[in-house]
Nucleic acid binder design. Sequence first.
DNA 1: AGAATTTACTGAACCGGATAAGTTGTGGAG
DNA 2: CTCCACAACTTATCCGGTTCAGTAAATTCT
Lengths: 337, 337
Amino acid sequence: MKRPTIADIARRAGVSKGAVSYALNGQPGVSEATRQRIVAIAQEIGFNPNSAARALSGASARAVGLTLARPARILSIEPFFMGLISGFEAELAARSYALTLQVVATPEQEVEVYRRWWGERRIDGVIVTDLREDDVRIPVLQQLQLPAVVIGGPGDTGKIAQVWSDDAGAITETVRYLVALGHRRIARVGGLPDLLHTRTRTRAFEDVCTALGLNEAVTMPSDYTGEEGGRATRRLLIGADRPTAIIYDNDVMAVAGLAVAQEMGLAVPGDLSIVAWDDSPLCSLVHPPLTALSRDIAEYGAHAARELLAAIDGKQVSNVEAGTAHLTPRGSTAPPR
Amino acid sequence: MKRPTIADIARRAGVSKGAVSYALNGQPGVSEATRQRIVAIAQEIGFNPNSAARALSGASARAVGLTLARPARILSIEPFFMGLISGFEAELAARSYALTLQVVATPEQEVEVYRRWWGERRIDGVIVTDLREDDVRIPVLQQLQLPAVVIGGPGDTGKIAQVWSDDAGAITETVRYLVALGHRRIARVGGLPDLLHTRTRTRAFEDVCTALGLNEAVTMPSDYTGEEGGRATRRLLIGADRPTAIIYDNDVMAVAGLAVAQEMGLAVPGDLSIVAWDDSPLCSLVHPPLTALSRDIAEYGAHAARELLAAIDGKQVSNVEAGTAHLTPRGSTAPPR
DNA sequence: AGAATTTACTGAACCGGATAAGTTGTGGAG
DNA sequence: CTCCACAACTTATCCGGTTCAGTAAATTCT
């Protein structure tokens, strides 16, 4: 089956290719009557502009890129990214932008992908996740002048816009809540230590614990996997003065932590309170359901997509905070026995 | 920053554009010495061929498409799709194909996306998931002559290749295992009823139950969400002659079912055995860990990607079975009390 | 040695849109 | 009645690759 082109439309409408282009793009240069005739023909023969031709003649590629820099086994279970993707899509589809995905292993590989995408002119912009301190990707994106939006922050990204949620505020609220319940020994199982938002959370956690006069604010570093989360939990719980509450940096680790606690004969929430960061359906599925820091991840993604599209349109975008995670208390938190 | 083009390379090498094209694509028409000189220059200036120009001049777009036709809240928690995507990527990245993603709501919308992608010449082929009976997407793909691979089946897809796993065999093995443990009342919480593989599983489940002389083979239809899975479980467990074992069509529902059973005061596996279809880390996270039907989803996806790339290359591809799911017994199955 | 073939290129057309520059035709102002 | 401005087009060029038709020089064959 042959794809219809603007030349086909032009022939049927008895006008030139140029007129068709003007008509379909809402540009001046054709009368309203002709425009409607052309649009009708385009509709009728099911015309879609060849994205390659469009991209080649200077217009945008109408596509944005996203790299996922986590091992496959984490990606598959971590609901965060799929939520984010759903959010992007809602926004991108509305403006018929495509989303191009690539799974990578390291930030260096990610940089390579950006360079290739840029060179191939395959995408108009990228969404960057998992910001690190002195992130190698930022200077490359600036050098390439590739429109970008960073999810996570705040950090030093120069002119590249950031969309973030107030992680420090959320963790402060959580610790205050646990202290109000009567907890004094609160630990945390953190995410990948070199991610900027992990550092932000760790610092905020330490600050609020100090401010409230809690003896120690232990953060066990982890990697978002259930195995590591469970292991970190076990290490926290075997000590003599084990914590009475643990905050997890994602829901997967929290669920794993819950299983470990139960396996060790500890009652949740009686002996141990658990708070999960990011509230996926997973948190409500387990027993007891987990108290969680909820935020609308899809909306978070949609927000980022909107910012990126604005950046692609050449608008100056600034950093925006996309709503703080709020505590959703469920069955996994209670006063300590 | 200006993107280097073959014209830049040609100028620096003192040859014509055509020669550069031949050299970089391994075509005959240039001497080995010239080729190496050109390749070296391309390397040096960091040349990447403009994908739009390439696609426009008849070559492939070097991209494949995948539509995800599930609501966002399911996508985010269902590990299956991310696993599949990881598998695709492994294969696609190796041949530097891009993956274009689109989230859609209905099969009709999906068809629209295929038509648009085809019209835009944005992709070279698509991967189709969630095959239904008399699937509306199949005739469209055939009409458009868009290379495609269907995941799931076997079904009637004409010349379009299928990659599937032997679901009937897997469910038969599972029921036999449960019966060997002493179970006589086995129920099932199924996936979306109009998906072909759900029907395949339901039929196989009924067949093996009949063959083994079990009184009834109840399948509660569901939609892969935890809520629905929990609800279906509750409905199954309130009856007088409640089942002693339940097979779930995905892991999310199985985890939800486990929580419901525990909430109703039933011991797992003492009072109720649970088997999950698809073995994500989720199954090992909960307590007790779930007996599951394991299959390598990433490899499944990689397999499909390979078939699709072969189809794009014009090779005749046939239907392939990509390995049966095998039972991984864990703590959630035992003889009934 | 001369013809035939092969090698190693060059030049130009082409893909399908976007767009700048040029060409009509029409209506209103002077 | 003429001139001008503007709408409504057409024509031609460009984007950056691929590829086909030439062409000159080198090599092989007889």
